[in-house]
């Protein structure tokens, strides 16, 4: 009987994401004991609310990392798409048009990244590092270093600050996006192709998969989700600025993806894991906030968590 139980335990412990969900639950319990108001429903919704932009970007980033790539441009893409939305809205006063413009911008930048990586075969880290600078510079030229105040009314701010059934709209967007992409990743041909490219690019190519197109599309998705995050952020604070999504944004996003069990070598990963990773980091920083831990220590703690998670995995897999 005990043998059966431990066998069952082994199966559970061996499941990817089990360690993370267990630590998440443990963490919530610890914070709840240290500070009972943590479990208050408003606080819990607040935790999710604060990680929506990171979470939305992390969902897109998961696809890129699953092919073995990386996208460092999410920060400036967030900024420039907020600006595009602002200027489109100012010009046309149309919410759908500005949403479309912003997401189109993000997707286009992603397409450039993807083309450089897939068709010119340049290293993703350098390509997106260079594009980070290019996009930020472009954003600053377009918007200048100032804050742009959004005009009143017309429902644009609904995206970031509205409520549906007592839950912020941005949280709904995050949840819907997560479910949609999780479905795409697990149940679509594209999802399998992404993982196949990351697992063995040559095998995918020889089996007739459009490897370069798939790679490019992952960057397009990542750019589009960064743009969506930019929309939400600008509508949350009623402003758009070229300086949003400062350096470190991409680190948060990558951290969430990697914590969620997606391998940086590509091939292995899941959107659901990423969502767990996002929630984990959100709980960590909310908890540390409640406990009044200074921001700088939080920054160091985050670095340590990533390093710890990564090296633990490198140890168990015995590879790079």
């Amino acid at each position: 009987m005990i043998g059966r139980l431990s066998q069952l335990g082994g199966v559970w412990l061996g499941r990817p994401g089990f360690g993370l969900s267990a630590s998440l639950i443990a963490l919530v319990a610890i914070f709840a004991i240290l500070s009972p108001e943590f479990l208050h429903i408003d606080n819990l919704v607040g935790v999710v609310h604060r990680v929506t932009t990171t979470g939305i970007m992390a969902v897109g980033m998961t696809f890129v990392i699953m092919t073995g790539g990386i996208d460092l441009t999410v920060g400036p893409v967030l900024a420039i798409s907020g600006l595009v939305a602002f200027f489109t809205f100012e010009g046309s006063a149309s919410v759908p048009l500005s949403v479309l413009g912003a997401i189109g911008t993000g997707a286009a930048i992603g397409a450039l990244n993807g083309a450089a990586v897939a068709y010119l075969r340049l290293p993703p880290i350098i390509v997106t590092l260079a594009m980070l600078s290019i996009v930020r510079g472009t954003a600053l030229i377009v918007g200048g270093p100032i804050l742009h105040q959004l005009p009143e009314g017309a429902g644009y701010e609904f995206i970031g600050t509205g409520f549906l059934f007592g839950v912020p709209v941005s949280v709904w967007i995050f949840l819907a996006l997560a479910m949609l992409t999780a479905f795409v990743q697990r149940r679509s041909a594209f999802g399998l192709e992404v993982a196949a490219v990351g697992d063995n690019e040559r095998a995918a190519f020889l089996s007739g998969r459009p490897v370069r197109l798939v790679k490019t599309l992952t960057y397009v998705i990542c750019g589009a989700t960064a743009a969506l995050a930019g929309l939400i952020q600008s509508s949350q604070v009623y402003t758009a600025s070229a300086n949003f999504g400062e350096f470190g944004t991409e680190l948060d996003v990558i951290a969430a993806v990697v914590l969620g069990g997606t391998s940086l070598q590509g091939g292995r990963g899941s959107i659901l894991g990423t969502v767990m990773g996002v929630l984990f980091l959100g709980v960590v920083s909310s908890g540390l906030n409640i406990l009044d831990v200074p921001v700088d220590v939080q920054l160091i703690a985050k670095g340590l968590i990533i390093v710890g998670a990564l090296s633990a995995r490198a140890g168990t897999q015995g590879q790079i």
Binding site: P123, I126, A130, M131, S133, I134, G137, I141
Partner: peptide
Amino acid sequence: FTQQILTGAILLGAVY
């Protein structure tokens, strides 16, 4: 700001 763009573009050119 243009310089920032140029730095990035030069890096891209160099890796290419």
